[in-house]
Design a protein around this nucleic acid. Structure first.
Lengths: 219, 219
DNA sequence: GCGGGCGGACTGACTGGTCAGTCCGTTTGC
DNA sequence: GCAAACGGACTGACCAGTCAGTCCGCCCGC
């Protein structure tokens, strides 16, 4: 009886769980010590399992690491999806997306570390995980820019340029903020970044609605 | 006589030369293989010297690496200085600076790699080299923004926000461009980035001079 | 029911290989 | 001839990955 209910509720420790547990601990450890300095023995110790067990779930340290990075990126994009779900207005969507992007990395600084580690340690990879994921989603964002240009809400600038600069600003902000340490001071707030970016991207008519510019000037 | 003049001009193979040679080779090697996978033996081989010699100039692999990073950053700032030397107009200075910044990293991709490697391998460092250098120079840039705000050429936005977003966009652009591989497509061109950034930063009056915005829109 | 045995999840000591850093013999320049 | 500079063999630490063995839950034959 107790045996049966146990079998249903807590069957030994079902493998999928174990895999996730390993990924959790690995993410933490890799983020804390870096790929090279994170010893698999330490990971096993953290989990309270034998080292051999790790290799039952992942063929190598490298694959384990990459699985952790991939999971992080999947979660980022899920988060973006959630944040923008049901919102129709493209401008609103972009704002929410940017905010969610920054929030995600602020809430999960270990994700930033993992991206850095991937770039640093696996130079051989044709394309880092970050880009693989970005490429799968960037088109949707560009579509929003196109719509806004069509409706006269954005200046007619190549959408690739818009998305590239947006990405660069957000990406750069995440990294600088994460690196810089002095979290409070670096512009991590989406509002600040969007303020600057939008006023380069929005059409005049859209722009005057949200800003009070001032003074004359000349070159 | 020849001894004397030689002692002054070229004492033996002056250590500074040898030191620079080592740094050159180390920069190349670290950038190519990453810190961990760059073996000091390989470096010695590249240079055609014994491994012991390296340790006559640098106390450890770590110090050697950090010296290389530091040199890179010094060179970047020299380059920025040069690029803007003699130019009075603050707007012009900022443009030239941004351009020089991107050019520098495009011409020296190994510098990007070194910055990544530093962050990845030396998590213990209070502040990465990049920031140490940035902090020594950022005030000057902010001064330009202040001037432009005062003269009505920029919107009255906190200068910290301006410099943070500018830095983020440039920094992000360098990294994305470097990572992304497909160099041609990513907006690495300063003109594109500045176009977007300036129109969020410049005052209306300054803005109308350089853009033709269009169409209406509304939220 | 019940015991024997089967499968497979798990363990951790061990191996093989890698390298940073050392150290002393040698060479070079004066 | 004597420093100072150099070379490169050597060592000690470290660690990913392995594998022979253990342990435990379950199933099957009685």
């Amino acid at each position: 009886m107790s045996k049966l209910s146990r079998a249903v509720r807590d069957p030994v420790v079902e493998p999928p769980d174990r895999r996730e547990q390993i990924l959790d601990a690995a993410t933490r450890l890799f983020a804390e010590h870096g790929f090279t300095d994170a010893a698999t023995q330490g990971l096993a110790d953290d989990l309270g399992v034998g080292k051999g067990t790790l290799y039952r779930y992942f063929p190598s340290k490298r694959e384990l690491f990459l699985a952790a990075v991939d999971r992080v990126m999947r979660r980022l994009h899920e988060r973006l999806e959630q944040a923008t779900a049901g919102v129709e207005d493209p401008l609103e969507r972009v704002s929410l997306g940017a905010r969610a992007y920054l929030d995600f990395f602020r809430e999960h600084p270990e994700s930033v570390e993992l991206l850095i580690q991937e770039r640093a340690q696996f130079k051989d990879r044709e394309r880092p995980t970050y880009f693989e994921h970005r490429e799968r989603h960037v088109d949707r964002w560009r579509e929003h820019y196109r719509k806004m240009i069509a409706s006269g809400r954005m200046r007619d600038v190549p959408v690739e340029r818009i998305s590239d600069v947006f990405t660069a600003a957000l990406y750069g902000s995440v990294f600088l903020h994460y690196f810089g340490g002095r979290s409070e001071t670096f512009a991590a707030d989406a509002t600040d970044i969007l303020d600057v970016l939008f006023h380069g991207v929005l059409s005049d008519s859209e722009r005057v609605k949200r800003t009070s510019a001032d003074g004359p000037g000349g070159t």
